[in-house]
Design a protein around this nucleic acid. Structure first.
Length: 205
DNA sequence: AGTGCGATTGACT
DNA sequence: GTCAATCGCACTA
């Protein structure tokens, strides 16, 4: 199989619980397609870092119940939840349970895979390592904003998740980054040794 | 209607 | 390593 060929994942292939999905997504490909443009039609990156926000998690955006802003977290697994934070950044989750159960997997970093020139343009930098290292940069590199909230990532469309013949490397784990609650739980996963991972490659910072 | 906070980034030392 | 910017959303009244 051509290692560059990307096949879209079908929903039944996604693990049905948040923790397993967070591990499973490492090494998969996040694809952004722009049907409006012939040039730079596709931007894609290998997912190299994720965090699980599990059922009943006090750090999860679903913790206080369903609201208009977080409703995508309650969709059946495999939908995008995009939120805006710190006045300048968008972050993207993959809903992981449901329907009706609020939980998700935060995508924290991508290794550029396709459309590097377009990513550099969107990010305003030429530093390959910084294109999608961090959840806000990831969204910026692919042009993801609230318009993509609620999108089915297992369907044809501008944003979906795929798989190649290249398997993920060894998976490292750690506590999650930047939280004030539930600091101790080991719910962050990353591809070991990958330079596109955003945070420390050890259990605790 | 007003207040406080946050799953971050980029600039700077 | 430190730190300020910035604004949508939830909460209080």
């Amino acid at each position: 199989m051509d290692p560059l060929r990307i096949r879209r994942l079908r929903r039944p292939e996604l693990p049905a619980d948040t923790l397993t999905l967070a591990r499973y997504l490492i090494g998969k490909i996040l694809v952004r397609e722009n049907p409006a443009s012939i040039a730079n039609r596709r931007i894609a990156g290998r997912i190299v870092e994720t965090e699980a926000y599990v059922i009943g998690d006090p750090s999860g955006h679903a913790f206080h119940g369903l609201t208009p802003a977080n409703r995508s977290l309650f969709l059946r697994r495999g939908h995008a939840y995009v939120y805006f934070i710190y006045g300048s950044c968008y972050c993207m989750n993959v809903s992981s349970e449901g329907p009706g159960i609020g939980a998700g997997v935060l995508l924290r970093a991508l290794e550029p895979f396709q459309g590097v020139a377009a990513m550099k343009r969107r990010r305003g930098t030429s530093r390959l390592r910084d294109l999608a290292r961090g959840p806000g940069r990831l969204a910026a590199a692919l042009g993801i904003d609230r318009r993509y909230d609620g999108l089915d990532l297992c369907a044809r469309g501008p944003l979906w998740i795929g798989i190649t013949s290249q398997p993920a490397g060894a998976i490292g784990e750690s506590v999650r980054i930047g939280l004030s609650r539930e600091k101790e739980r080991v719910l962050r996963f990353y591809e070991r040794g990958n330079p596109f991972v955003s945070g420390p490659q050890r259990l605790r910072a």
